[in-house]
Simulated scan of single mutants.
Amino acid sequence: MIFLISVWRELAGLFVDNGALALAIVAVVLLAGILATLMPDIPLAAGAILLFGCLGVLFSNALRVGHR
């Protein structure tokens, strides 16, 4: 049983190693989803939010981790 718990923790750690990064990506995806729902005639706007938002979050996280 302890083995299964440790395997589960390791697996979860693969996806959510940095909680702040995961929350920021979820926020960007939610923002893009809301924009796509409110403005369905402009799908490129939601795509741009996804692209630049995720890149911005990744870049800022890399800078923050690099300064440690």
Rank of each mutant, 00 (worst) to 15 (best):
R68K: 15
A12R: 00
P43M: 02
G19E: 11
L58G: 12
L4A: 12
L11Y: 09
V26Q: 09
L11N: 10
T37A: 12
L44G: 15
L50P: 03
V26N: 10
L23C: 12
L44F: 11
A24V: 03
D17Y: 12
S60Y: 15
I34F: 03
A46Q: 05
A46H: 05
I2T: 08
V29H: 04
V26K: 05
A20M: 14
R64Y: 09
N61E: 14
A12C: 03
A46R: 02
A46C: 05
V28T: 01
P43R: 02
F59W: 13
V16W: 00
A32R: 00
A45N: 05
I25N: 12
R9S: 00
L11A: 10
G47N: 13
L30M: 05
L58A: 15
L14W: 02
I2Y: 10
V26H: 06
L50F: 07
F52T: 10
T37C: 10
R64G: 02
A27D: 04
G53C: 08
L58Y: 13
F15D: 07
P40V: 02
G56R: 06
A36H: 10
G33D: 01
L21S: 12
A32Y: 01
T37F: 09
A20G: 13
L30F: 06
I2L: 11
S60E: 14
S60V: 14
S6P: 09
L4C: 14
C54E: 07
L55P: 11
N61I: 08
I34W: 05
R68Q: 13
V26I: 08
I34A: 05
I42S: 09
S6K: 13
C54F: 14
V65A: 02
V65M: 02
D41R: 03
V29C: 10
A32E: 00
C54L: 14
F52C: 06
G66S: 11
L30S: 07
I49S: 01
S6Q: 15
L30D: 07
A20D: 14
F15Y: 04
F15C: 05
F15K: 03
L21M: 13
G56V: 09
L35K: 03
V57G: 01
A12V: 00
N18P: 04
L4G: 06
A20S: 15
I49L: 07
L38G: 07
F15P: 05
A22H: 03
L51F: 14
P40S: 04
A20F: 14
A45T: 04
G47K: 08
I2N: 14
H67S: 15
L35I: 04
L55N: 13
G33S: 02
A36Y: 06
G66Q: 05
A48M: 13
T37Q: 15
L58D: 10
S60T: 15
G53F: 10
L14A: 03
V16I: 11
P40A: 04
A36R: 12
V65I: 06
L31A: 07
F59S: 11
N18T: 08
L23P: 01
G47L: 06
L14S: 02
I25H: 07
P40L: 04
V7I: 13
A48G: 11
S60R: 14
I49P: 02
N18R: 08
L4Q: 08
R64S: 10
N18M: 02
N18S: 09
G53L: 07
P43S: 03
